[in-house]
Design a protein around this nucleic acid. Sequence first.
DNA 1: TGAAATAGGTTTCATTTGTAACTATAAATA
DNA 2: TATTTATAGTTACAAATGAAACCTATTTCA
Lengths: 152, 152
Amino acid sequence: MTDNKDKTLVLENFLPYRLSYLTNIISHQLAQLYTTQFDITAHEWKILAILNRYPNISAADAGEKTAMDKVAVSRAVKELSEKALVHKIFAAEDKRRSVLNLTGQGTDLFHKIAPLVTEYENALLAILTKQEQAQLSQLLDKLTHHVTAVKP
Amino acid sequence: MTDNKDKTLVLENFLPYRLSYLTNIISHQLAQLYTTQFDITAHEWKILAILNRYPNISAADAGEKTAMDKVAVSRAVKELSEKALVHKIFAAEDKRRSVLNLTGQGTDLFHKIAPLVTEYENALLAILTKQEQAQLSQLLDKLTHHVTAVKP
DNA sequence: TGAAATAGGTTTCATTTGTAACTATAAATA
DNA sequence: TATTTATAGTTACAAATGAAACCTATTTCA
């Protein structure tokens, strides 16, 4: 009889706990890469990355694509603007809507950090075979779709 | 040529990002279960769960088993003690070391919450086949061992 | 139209969290 | 043994976060 069978919750086997344990460690290690060498928070890094990929998007769009709430986006953008890494204007056709872009400096910084984090990702994935990597990707997709469907 | 090939970091494909996205949603949904119905934080819930499984452990042990830092453990235990859910004494043979246990009330509360969170876990896992669940478990193990080995 | 509702962003305030300093006890060592 | 060093836990302060209130601009529709 397994522990789950008799209804005793075993933290070590509990999926949400295991996911959060792993994720916390990874996020922490990853953050080291840019918080120490460059003076950038995790939120700020996310905004840099998303603006590199999608120029001219609004704060709301950036929030949606990064799963950050609008307050966090607003604060990160403000910081990044003050650091001259991001340029913000308001759209002419709708003056509420912001239009965000990396500055030259912002682009430069992105290209300094990106190799570090992809290197970290590669180091992570190195213990998995190509097939396992594909499995993992698929499982994460399934779970993510499921989970966002349940409570959108 | 894929986006990864030309070194442009694509957030949506980046494993740490995808993990953190999924985990945040799950943690949040899960927390709803006990923060709303019972007045318990995520940290407090972790302590309840670990003390149910391992009675008589110290705060340091609890922290190690839950991946919480000692300050978070101290605060959660203090709260739980004030709510009479956890009983804390100091060990006779080493007066620095605490000895923690659930009270009767604490045990009762644990047994109220446990079914809710396991039900949530089951709902989560329901989109995966048994085989996929096993794969996921194995992949998480591999990654977790790897990641803790890299930076212990 | 013009009042009400909505949407994008920002600010404020309270809570949470993390780091570092601190207290008390125990272990190590000189 | 006396002094240093290490360990368990708490406290204090600062930074990060989240919820709600708050502009301002745009829609909606009576």
